[in-house]
Simulated assay, not measured.
Amino acid sequence: MEQLPIYAKQCIQCPSQEYPNSERTHCILKSVTFLAFEDALGTAITFTALCLFVITAIVLGVFVKHRDTPIVKANNQALSFILLISLLPCFLCSLLFIGHPNTATCVLQQVVFGLVFTVAVSTVLAKTMTVILAFKAMKPGRTMRCLLLSGASNSVIPICSLIQMIICGVWLGTSTPFIDIDSHSEPRNLIIVCKKGSVTAFYCVLGYLGFLALGSFTVAFLARNLPDTFNEAKFLTFSMLVFCSVWVTFVPVYHSTKGKFMVAVEVFSIIVSSAGLLGCIFAPKCYIILIRPKENSWKALKNRRGSK
């Protein structure tokens, strides 16, 4: 009986930077990928962020032009300007997540994101406190009136921003974000990503933002029915509801995605939450300023107060 020949085959695993071909005869070098500006997704995100940046700049221009009208002066016009100015870098910081990552962008992504959003959310909290102080100041008693005139609510912004700066400083001092290569998420691609360094620090920044947003939402919700002309507490409440909903949804979606789509989820959350603040707070005011200017006058203001 003829004996069949025995063929011995030895399999060699491809390095992490390579993947086997379909015949599994040799290894092929993986291509390097990241969320680039040239990609369809990167182009769409960039276009959206720049469009919203321009819209915010236009709204800021409208408010500056009509700064002496009642609707702009209501609820502290300085806070409205601060909020609009802080929303400008909120939209632009999303561009830091697009393109080839480097050490500078990896650090700036999280620090700029944390600080500019803290300024924006703390400004909403200050505006909400202004609504309550303005209503309380109408009642007998000098304490609330003194707090309103002294601009005590404005101090919320630097205090909250300082706390976030300390958190970011500790983050950068202990575990700075760095560039890394993800060779496992996609079998044929090497994904260049920014590692956050300390995941705990990242969620401390995000959790602090959530704490401010929840506080702003709670205060605005309690003040939503105060009988004040041009009371924007309802709009502030809805803006914080949108903001909190976006970032609560972000956490599970972020952990369920991989590669550059994980970056896209974070950028999408940044843009949508910023757009929520812009649209919910300033769209109703722009509607009155531009479409129904007769309601934005001191005479109309007196008539509304008289009818109430």
Rank of each mutant, 00 (worst) to 15 (best):
107 V>E: 13
184 H>N: 06
76 N>K: 05
104 A>P: 00
89 P>F: 05
271 I>F: 02
18 E>D: 09
103 T>G: 00
34 F>H: 12
237 T>E: 11
141 G>E: 07
82 I>W: 07
250 F>N: 13
261 F>W: 07
199 V>Y: 00
26 H>C: 02
135 F>R: 05
250 F>T: 03
29 L>Q: 14
62 V>P: 00
104 A>C: 04
253 V>R: 04
273 S>N: 06
250 F>K: 00
256 S>G: 00
157 I>G: 06
109 Q>I: 02
13 Q>G: 05
133 L>G: 11
114 G>N: 06
288 I>A: 03
267 V>S: 07
246 V>I: 15
32 V>F: 08
101 P>S: 06
174 T>M: 11
200 T>A: 14
149 L>M: 12
84 L>Q: 11
50 L>T: 13
86 S>G: 06
299 K>R: 12
159 I>G: 02
221 F>C: 08
131 V>M: 09
97 F>S: 02
85 I>A: 15
98 I>N: 00
2 E>P: 14
166 I>W: 05
203 Y>V: 04
62 V>Q: 08
277 L>A: 05
38 E>A: 12
157 I>N: 09
7 Y>W: 07
46 T>E: 00
92 L>G: 09
301 L>P: 02
227 P>D: 10
171 W>H: 10
277 L>C: 12
4 L>G: 04
282 F>A: 03
22 S>E: 14
288 I>D: 06
15 P>D: 13
147 L>V: 00
136 K>A: 13
234 K>Y: 04
78 A>T: 12
203 Y>G: 04
2 E>N: 07
104 A>M: 11
171 W>Y: 04
14 C>H: 05
114 G>C: 04
234 K>I: 00
190 L>W: 06
293 P>A: 11
114 G>S: 15
76 N>P: 05
30 K>W: 10
68 D>T: 15
240 M>I: 09
169 G>R: 03
88 L>M: 15
139 K>F: 09
239 S>M: 10
66 H>G: 04
36 A>T: 15
92 L>T: 13
259 G>S: 03
40 A>S: 14
258 K>I: 08
172 L>P: 04
253 V>D: 02
24 R>L: 11
138 M>A: 10
21 N>T: 10
259 G>W: 03
9 K>M: 04
207 G>C: 04
171 W>P: 01
6 I>G: 02
56 T>N: 15
204 C>G: 01
291 I>Q: 10
49 A>K: 13
184 H>W: 01
172 L>V: 02
140 P>S: 09
107 V>N: 03
138 M>Q: 14
80 S>G: 15
170 V>T: 06
175 S>R: 10
289 I>C: 02
178 F>M: 08
148 L>G: 02
132 I>G: 08
64 V>R: 14
228 D>N: 11
128 T>Q: 08
12 I>T: 11
34 F>W: 15
254 Y>S: 02
181 I>T: 12
204 C>H: 04
1 M>Q: 04
209 L>I: 10
253 V>A: 11
275 A>V: 01
159 I>W: 00
280 C>L: 01
132 I>T: 13
242 V>F: 12
